[in-house]
Design a protein around this nucleic acid. Sequence first.
DNA 1: CGCTCTTTTGAAGTTCTTCAATTTTAGTGG
DNA 2: CCACTAAAATTGAAGAACTTCAAAAGAGCG
Lengths: 257, 257
Amino acid sequence: MSSFGKIASLRHPVAINLADRPSASACEDCGARHLGLCDALSDEELVFLSSAAHRMTLPTGRLFLEEGDAAQFFYNVNSGTVRLFKALPDGRRQITGFAGPGHFIGLAATDMNVVSAETMEPVQLCRFSRAGMRAMFEEYPALERKLLDVAMHELVLSQQQMLLLGRKTALERIASFLLSWAQRQENCNTGKLPRPNAKLTLPLSRTDLADYLGLTIETVSRSLSALKKEGLIEIPNIHEVVLLRPQALENIAEAAN
Amino acid sequence: MSSFGKIASLRHPVAINLADRPSASACEDCGARHLGLCDALSDEELVFLSSAAHRMTLPTGRLFLEEGDAAQFFYNVNSGTVRLFKALPDGRRQITGFAGPGHFIGLAATDMNVVSAETMEPVQLCRFSRAGMRAMFEEYPALERKLLDVAMHELVLSQQQMLLLGRKTALERIASFLLSWAQRQENCNTGKLPRPNAKLTLPLSRTDLADYLGLTIETVSRSLSALKKEGLIEIPNIHEVVLLRPQALENIAEAAN
DNA sequence: CGCTCTTTTGAAGTTCTTCAATTTTAGTGG
DNA sequence: CCACTAAAATTGAAGAACTTCAAAAGAGCG
């Protein structure tokens, strides 16, 4: 957890949501959710902010941001999952991240978007004009601080991913992914291992997984099968994985010998 | 160039350096240099800032930031080059970036450093305590804005690197690297191709290059030789590369068919 | 000038990919 | 509810790209 984040949330220990997101009960003590913009602002500020926001609901598979287009908006995800990716002309694709509830989209941009964004499920999001956002920074410095915090966190994640893509084997990538996804889903960045038998829900297809980990779907499939055969995981169905032995996965993921 | 950067530099079109860096003549119209903190502040603010900074000079090969240590400081590079990297227990290393003059170090951190930093040449830098920096944000919002701008730019770069590491071939990686290094060195992020016969100076060893591009030194060497054989580059010596046909390199780098 | 370290080049080996076939899953209509 | 179809995932076998191991050439330094 970043120190900037801590400041922001201490000063505004609020739990109202940007839009009317469902329950926010888990928000306050969750490392990942407080990375949403929501926690950065007081009630009053949130009202102002949400007046500047445009709520939208998108169906599955909607490409709402395209690499190379002029960067007009920021987005904040309320529900559902978004995949962010870059692509080469011949179709090769690298998914750079996934944005779920509370996540902010649009930081990785100059005047143009440098990534594309596509919904993986029905998604609700709030849209802000970048210009309006800049104006708002004058009024509400806490917002800017929060954004810096989010950006720094993204930077940490992307550097982990560089290590994974540049130096890890297929098996290590899969193990790393499972653990990081567990953190994301469950105990939100506490840095602790998930408990044995923790159940993961993956909204990702094998293709997404492959494009995120820099592998082919066949290699992803084979690696998952290998972990299953070794008794480290169970795969009740395509969208669920049970982590039978998280410590063993961690040893593989971190190449601990 | 990011819009936030524009704001910051328009408001404070100053060219004093953080410490007494050599000539700053090229600073104002250079996309990369204005990413240094220097441009974000007025004269008065800079005086204040530099009073909070601790100047240091480090010899080649000094490891001054270690992954996992408590994150106490930010650094701003004045001269020389620093390599930032993550490593696995068995020694595999991934260089996540290089920091040269004007570059800011320490953004990719939570309470702990998530990367290590090591000097590649004699390096001069300014050190700021993270706590002091936070206090300064209250006084000088422009500073925080600038930092957000820097973080966003880093994010853009790291996503390009993810595409490279996850999806590009060895030859494509080398071609991409040469072009990006030319931009860094020469026309600073203008997005234009370097002119034919542009000469690159690489302070990197082949090992650094390999660890940056997720390859082995042998593959790096072979790929460079291949580009040379094809007449796209010339390699007068180990630390210099001449880009004979930048457009052809670009075609390889971007997999344009 | 000779030593060492880095880089280059070659040959063999490994991991991952590609191609192909089978199995499983999911969606649709009877 | 079940069968049928299409898409996705798994598994197998062959191939390619990169790595590893090994040796030679080149650069740097006392």
